[in-house]
Structure formats: C-alpha cells, structure tokens
C-alpha cells in the first residue's frame, strides 16, 4: 500500500480529460492505497456544491476514503467561499500541501 498525492490543477469545463484524475484516485484507493486529491488553481472549479455532474461527488460515492482537499488561495482567488463547497471537501493550503510533498514515501502526480 502506498500513499498518493494527486494534485489536480485543471477543471472539466476547459479540459474534457479531467475525469481521468478522479477515476485514477478511485482506482488507486480501491487497491488499498492512501489517496489524497488536492484541488488547486482552476481545479477548484469542481469544489462548488452546485457544480453539474460534479466529479467530486461521484468520487465521494465511489471511493469515500479518498481525501479531497482544496487550496484556500485558489478558492479565495475565485470568490468561492467555504460555505458553498461540496460535501467532503476540506479546505487546505500550500503549507499543508508541502507537508505532504516532502514525505519521501508519497507518490506525487501533478495534473
């Protein structure tokens, strides 16, 4: 079992390929890995509760053990308040991201 940090900077409105990361997160989790999906930059466009066909909600349904975090600056930069976030998303920040990045047993995937 490994620890994965998947960092998603893209959103499905601009990139049709974005569900790839959500599916990968679910598949890695299903194999017993510890998986965090960290949304940053336009990746946080999936964080709002009212997003249509929200891949975060789908992931939460398929793989509830995946930790979904969203970068506070990216949220604030886009005027997305914590009260509007989809269920299961934790507000995080770059300080906490760094704590995960420097862990030598974490596999990092930036997208």
């Amino acid at each position: 079992m490994a620890r994965y940090l998947l960092i998603e900077s893209r959103d499905p409105f601009e990139f049709a390929d974005t569900t790839y990361m959500y599916e990968l997160a679910g598949d890695l989790c299903a194999k017993g890995n510890n998986v965090t999906l960290f949304l940053i930059q336009n990746g946080v466009f999936c964080a709002r509760r009212n997003v249509k066909d929200n891949p975060v909600a789908a992931l939460r349904g398929n793989a509830p053990d995946v930790q979904v975090q969203a970068d506070d600056f990216s949220l604030r930069e886009r005027g997305i308040s914590a009260g509007t976030l989809a269920e299961g998303i934790t507000v995080s920040n770059v300080d906490e991201l760094v704590d995960q990045l420097v862990e030598s047993d974490t596999k990092i995937v930036w997208h």
Partner: peptide
C-alpha cells in the same frame, strides 16, 4: 485505463 493504478503502483516515482 483500469490497469493504470497497477502501473502506477509498480513504479516508485510518477513524473506526470
């Protein structure tokens, strides 16, 4: 696509 998780698991570092 369903085999990607195994492929990732079989490597130490992912340069995406």
């Amino acid at each position: 696509r369903s085999e990607l998780a195994d492929l990732f698991d079989s490597h130490d570092s992912i340069w995406h």
